[in-house]
Deep mutational scan, measured.
Amino acid sequence: LAALHAEGPLAGLPVTRSDARVLIFNEWEERKKSEPWLRLDMSDKAIFRRYPHLR
């Protein structure tokens, strides 16, 4: 499970980098069924690119 911001401008976004990794992994797991070539990237760089508020 990932903790998400409940309200405000960040509502629905992950609270920590660990939470972001959970979301990225879950999405990758779903997408790899139809796109088996996808690589999993959970590096800090990938997290910041996707969720800049975690910098």
Rank of each mutant, 00 (worst) to 15 (best):
residue 3 A to T: 14
residue 35 E to V: 05
residue 16 T to E: 06
residue 23 L to N: 02
residue 28 W to H: 05
residue 30 E to S: 12
residue 20 A to P: 00
residue 4 L to W: 02
residue 31 R to M: 09
residue 22 V to H: 09
residue 42 M to Q: 07
residue 10 L to C: 10
residue 31 R to I: 04
residue 40 L to Q: 02
residue 33 K to H: 11
residue 9 P to C: 09
residue 5 H to Y: 13
residue 7 E to L: 09
residue 1 L to Y: 14
residue 52 P to F: 02
residue 37 W to K: 11
residue 43 S to M: 02
residue 48 F to D: 12
residue 44 D to F: 08
residue 15 V to Y: 06
residue 33 K to W: 10
residue 23 L to G: 01
residue 25 F to W: 11
residue 31 R to L: 09
residue 2 A to P: 13
residue 14 P to L: 01
residue 37 W to E: 11
residue 40 L to M: 05
residue 55 R to H: 08
residue 37 W to D: 11
residue 26 N to V: 11
residue 9 P to I: 08
residue 50 R to Y: 06
residue 27 E to Q: 07
residue 55 R to I: 13
residue 44 D to V: 08
residue 39 R to D: 09
residue 41 D to N: 08
residue 51 Y to K: 00
residue 42 M to N: 06
residue 19 D to T: 02
residue 37 W to T: 11
residue 14 P to H: 01
residue 49 R to G: 11
residue 5 H to C: 07
residue 20 A to K: 00
residue 47 I to A: 01
residue 17 R to P: 12
residue 18 S to C: 15
residue 48 F to E: 09
residue 31 R to Q: 09
residue 13 L to G: 02
residue 44 D to W: 10
residue 8 G to Q: 04
residue 7 E to T: 13
residue 15 V to I: 14
residue 4 L to E: 06
residue 39 R to I: 15
residue 53 H to R: 07
residue 49 R to F: 12
residue 23 L to E: 02
residue 37 W to Q: 11
residue 25 F to I: 12
residue 3 A to Q: 15
residue 33 K to T: 10
residue 13 L to F: 07
residue 30 E to W: 12
residue 6 A to T: 14
residue 12 G to Q: 05
residue 30 E to R: 14
residue 20 A to W: 01
residue 46 A to K: 06
residue 41 D to C: 08
residue 25 F to S: 04
residue 47 I to R: 00
residue 44 D to H: 07
residue 9 P to A: 10
residue 46 A to S: 09
residue 35 E to W: 08
residue 36 P to T: 06
residue 40 L to P: 06
residue 32 K to F: 09
residue 42 M to F: 09
residue 19 D to A: 08
residue 23 L to M: 09
residue 21 R to F: 05
residue 5 H to W: 13
residue 44 D to K: 08
residue 53 H to W: 03
residue 4 L to F: 08
residue 12 G to W: 04
residue 50 R to K: 13
residue 20 A to M: 01
residue 15 V to Q: 08
residue 9 P to L: 10
residue 25 F to V: 06
residue 23 L to W: 03
residue 32 K to A: 10
residue 43 S to L: 03
residue 10 L to I: 05
residue 53 H to M: 01
residue 7 E to A: 13
residue 17 R to A: 13
residue 3 A to N: 15
residue 39 R to S: 11
residue 35 E to G: 03
residue 48 F to V: 11
residue 27 E to P: 00
residue 15 V to R: 12
residue 3 A to F: 12
residue 32 K to V: 15
residue 23 L to P: 00
residue 52 P to Y: 02
residue 50 R to A: 09
residue 24 I to A: 02
residue 54 L to T: 01
residue 45 K to F: 12
residue 14 P to I: 01
residue 29 E to S: 15
residue 25 F to T: 04
residue 35 E to H: 09
residue 7 E to Q: 12
residue 43 S to H: 03
residue 45 K to T: 12
residue 49 R to D: 14
residue 30 E to I: 13
